[in-house]
Amino acid sequence: MMIRVDGLRKTYRMGNVEVRALDGVTLDVAGGEFVGITGPSGSGKSTLLHLIGLLDEPTAGSISVQGVDVLRLTDDERTHFRLTRIGYIFQDYALVPDLTALENVFLPTLARGMAEYDGLERAAALLRRVGLEERTDHLPAELSGGEQQRIAIARALVNEPALLLADEPCANLDTHASEMVLDLFARINREFGQTVLMVSHEESHQRYFTRTVRLQDGVVVDDSGRASGDGDDDQARGRGDASIYPVPFHHDHGDP
């Protein structure tokens, strides 16, 4: 099982008011699924993704990713876990302002220990994939929202994460660019066996998902199209499209 979430709660306390962002979410995601998460604004989608992405800690409940009880990891181990297994696309891109587009995408490969030349080639290939080959040397401040979003996507994919968490990755993209990104997700999902969890409001995105989870007021209200892909997990990875990952990666999925 790729993700196992059980009885997850997240409560924010604002003075005397309690905001229950998540109010008991239980969810299993198998390796190789492409899950869409929908729900109205404020329903807890980002909160759920933050928790699964190890960026925040729940008030109650348990989370395991690839069989690792991630809540028991130390701070350093979580950081390493994020680096090696998770790709995260933030709702607000979260690019490093001091780094160019290429450097933003290249940085995770450097942190991962990839040779500089290989890392740069990988980063360049992904930027080409998202249609930004002309913008590689620009700083984020010099780019449009949609362009920044695509850099964030390339950065999340560059380390070939077993799990991709995407928080409204197409929010600032036109139909054409959105389709390009979703096609890319579908391909890495199919060809490299990467599990994708994606927040989206768009009806038109639904056809890409193998499963849709609907949140409302912090609980799962609908969980349809549940895939039967249990068991194949990420062993299903094959060598896929070389235009996505031109340089092979030494996977180290061992414990941090």
């Binding site: 950081t79 680096l83 998770i86």
Partner: peptide, 9 residues
């Protein structure tokens, strides 16, 4: 951001 993408403190 650096910490979020997996750069150690």
């Amino acid at each position: 951001i650096l910490k979020a993408i997996g750069i150690h403190r």
